[in-house]
């Protein structure tokens, strides 16, 4: 069973993403290659899920300094920005064989649904995954209406 948070959504964009992923795998094969002969994507990669209580955004952003991470919610847009340091040293004695990992400033913006409550946002960072949970407004949660 695949991890629920990694399961592709059944829409055309995810199909394109899947195709892109397949192409990436073809051109960056997992078959053995020399450690000195290797060849680099949107950062961070984002999955979005919903529950009746909240909108869950998961950004796969390994190796970040959380103090340099900026999260803002403004007019229904959740923005994640920051910078990932280049960890490849520059020097005469260093030969670089692969530089596929993202380095530099990044910014991703997610459009939140109308019922998202910008006052109730929680964010956590664990094992390189940033998880942002935006609560839905009370009024939009499913309610049971009593019949008198």
């Amino acid at each position: 069973m695949l991890n629920a948070s990694f399961r592709p959504a059944a829409d055309i964009f995810s199909e394109f993403n899947r195709l892109q992923g397949l192409l990436d795998q073809v051109f960056r094969p997992a078959e053995r290659s020399s450690i000195r002969a290797l060849t680099g994507a949107t950062f961070p990669v984002i999955n979005v899920g919903t529950t009746p209580e909240a909108i869950e955004v998961m950004a796969l952003a390994p190796g970040l300094d959380t103090s340099a991470l900026q999260l803002t919610v403004d007019r229904g847009l959740l923005s994640i920005s920051g910078e990932r340091k280049n960890e490849v040293p520059e020097g005469d004695n260093t030969s670089v064989y692969a530089r596929e990992r993202f380095a530099g400033a990044f910014r991703r913006v997610i459009s939140l649904p109308q019922d998202a409550d910008p006052a109730k946002v929680e964010a956590s960072y664990r094992d390189g995954i940033l998880r942002v949970s935006v609560a839905r407004r009370e009024s939009s949660k499913p309610r049971r209406i009593e019949v008198n």
């Binding site: 991890n3 990694f6 990669v45 979005v48 909240a54």
Partner: peptide, 22 residues
């Protein structure tokens, strides 16, 4: 990869698909 996911979560948009790395 293992992520803690709230029960009943429905994925609406997914760029990352496979939790296995190799």
């Amino acid at each position: 990869a293992l992520t803690a996911v709230p029960e009943g979560m429905e994925l609406v948009y997914g760029e990352a698909e496979y939790p296995a790395y190799r």
